[in-house]
Design a protein around this nucleic acid. Sequence first.
RNA 1: GGGCGGUUAGCUCAGCUGGUAGAGCGUUCGGUUUACACCCGAAAGGUCGGCGGUUCGAAACCGUCACCGCCCACCA
Length: 844
Amino acid sequence: MTKKPSDMPEIEQRWRAEWERSGIYRFDPTRGRAETFVVDTPPPTVSGSLHIGHVFSYTHTDLMARYRRMQGDNIFYPMGWDDNGLPTERRVQNVFNVRCDPSLPYDAALDLEFGREGETLTVSRRNFIELCDRVVTEDEQGFKDLWQRLGLSIDWSQTYATVDERSRYVSQLSFLRLVEKGEAELREAPTMWDVDFQSAVAQAEVEDREKDGAFYKIRFDVQGGEDVLIATTRPELLPACIALVAHPDDTRYSSLIGGKAVTPLFRAPVPIIADEGADPEKGTGILMVCTFGDAADVEWWRQLKVPAREVIDRGGRIIPAPWGEGHWDSQDPEDAKKYHDKLAGLSISQARKEIVELLGDAGAIVGEPEKVRRPVKFYEKGERPLEFVVSRQWFVKVLDKKQELIDQGRKIQWHPDMFRGRYENWVEGLNQDWCVSRQRYFGVPIPIWYAISEDGGIDYDRLILPAKEQLPVDPYAEAPPGYTEDQRGKAGGFVGDADVFDTWATSSLTPLIPTGWPDEPAKLEGLYPTDLRPQGHEIIRTWAFTTITRAYLEDGSVPWWHVAISGWVLDPDRKKMSKSKGNVVLPTDTLDEYGSDSVRYWSASARLGSDAATDPNTFKEGKRLITKIRNAARLVLGFEGPGGPPTHPTDQALMARLRTLVQEVTNEWEAWDHAGALEATESWFWGDFCDNYLELVKTRAYNQDPSALGTLRTALDVVLRLFAPFVPFITEEVWSTMDKDGSIHLAKWPTTEELGTTEDTGAFDVAVTLLAQIRKVKSEAKVSIKTPVDRLVIKATAADLVLFESMADDLLATANAVVHETETVKGDAAPEAYVELGAPEVKV
RNA sequence: GGGCGGUUAGCUCAGCUGGUAGAGCGUUCGGUUUACACCCGAAAGGUCGGCGGUUCGAAACCGUCACCGCCCACCA
């Protein structure tokens, strides 16, 4: 070992290679479930950037894996890559400057460069997917490098990707089983829709954003009456109005209920109905129901049982002839068409401006618009508000099993426990079934065909399912059983579902993908349910929820017994990091600057569930600890001579205290508190061991006292093992210079039994108390710590004096005291030292 | 609007089942001590967010309020 810490990069590099070569993190398939610890590792989105947050949370997982490994468990610690879905598509679009057009034919010769400039190219679906594969391969390597550099004890022979054959197989097979059980079904219904990505989205991917808007008061005529004012923030939906709603107890409007109003401009008669859902306090208390402004509109539309008047197309523009040319439900169809033509083709925001003007000209807007700030639903990755669009989508039924899903959550231990509440809160608030189909390209295809009837129409009630042996299948490219490819799209033939699964539909199966489900029952039984799901709290509603749901629907199981939640990494100003704020810390930079063990130290010092700031001080603290470990080891291992059992009281006391530490640290681990374990270990190591014990024992150690040498070596051995999960590189490095077989990471976790049975008599406390007093006198006298003490008087209780005498040799040597006297005091006073110093040293 | 966290030394945080406040960093003072100056020793610094209550005793338990953060909620 060299003295300078600057060789840590070399040490890290060397052990990283050695661990990979020796395969110490390999899973052993011959051992049983009881002694196996299975991690359901989060597959990172490979198209996302490497983020310091990754380092933080993945370290948390590795800490527990390393602890369990040292406890003797056979660790199943696989790695998955989440490469399917929108993030990859987006990245491909940017990297190659392309868009996918599924109608184009495949171009086998297409060869694009990374960072291609110039005009945006449209490519076929298959070309697009090939580009996705290229990007993904590149990105995965970046993550693997980072993980290995960080020292994650992953078994790299257990890897998967969410678009690979195995994942597609599992995803499709599991889905087909849901279809057969009736738990997944195709529905044509208004669904939340992102007009930019042109895909349906699920409730879990939706977030509210506060947006400015304006309330417009619009005058509707009432048949056989005066008129009525409604308030709306979405006047552009007026042509889609199908009813007005007021609260049944709202006396202002009770006379109107059951009658009809007539929309301005379009002159469409619409019923006026009463419903508890209308809030008399909001707006004017009466509102228009449109197809579709929001989820409430969907609800009322269902109650009314009238056809939808859709006016917004899938790209977010006003449809030219919303309910069929010449079919205007209007008292004045010509006017209606005239007005609508002015809106047709406009985007939502353009249409809003236009219609406000038209309504204004027609005198149908009353007063000034009232500015309001209200929550608007967005796709979490989207930029424009979601619309409700009628489309055909696959849903997994969850609304009918909320209680069961909550009960499943209660069979799982959440760390920290408060996040169980988060989960239950989400399940209780579910108001839509889980929409799993997405109108995207790069993902797991929905393995379904639909029959085409003899008249040429697609019969969505006649599903054609693939044979299990056919999976994974791409129904867009392959023909279903009993058909041939030339029947595609023909009367009497079939059409393949062109959609892919939502990324969570596959990610929800990560406990099943690497564990042999369902064709290797022996393997599965040895690995499932898994032990640990680590994840962030922001994806409880997606990943945790969908995983629990899929496991429950599949066989009633829970997917794991523990969920460990990591917090977020904040910048030093306690702000959440984001690219737009420009405060993202790159993990490679941090690793370059501080080294892997230091960065791990920082991660480990944060408790599960709590956020952490990227604090340079904590990184430095880690670096200091690593240096301290090396130096202490250098001292201990530098002593020559045979070691023996602890016979000296100081040594016995140290062993007793170490035993207490081992118990405490083990308890912390068992309570899933790695930060507590680290803190206890570090505090013992730095305080008891380095500052006090090493000083007290030095003289005897230099004199080759076997009790001292044996104790020093045992203590180092044990404390290294306690540190090993946190700082695997430096502990392995030191371990390798000791007389030990194999890696420290396969060594047994320390037990109290291996540390004998000597009691902590209190001698150590007495010594430390007295030593502190002597040091204080010297410090106040501003002399060197090694200044001789001429006369030392110890005043203590009789019991403490016995303890003092037992280790007086160590204490006097450390204090450099030559004469000592003792004085017995009554009661339970702490021992006191009276110190007379020799002549101050003369400074040269 | 509903739910959940947090509020302890200048900063970042720990304080388990209630017994007169802790760590690291920072600050100040001192120390070349043959493991380590990425070190060692010492010191200063807090009415534990406010107000009530339970208790012999509350940072900890109960109630309430305030502020910060997060999650959720049909947005007319």
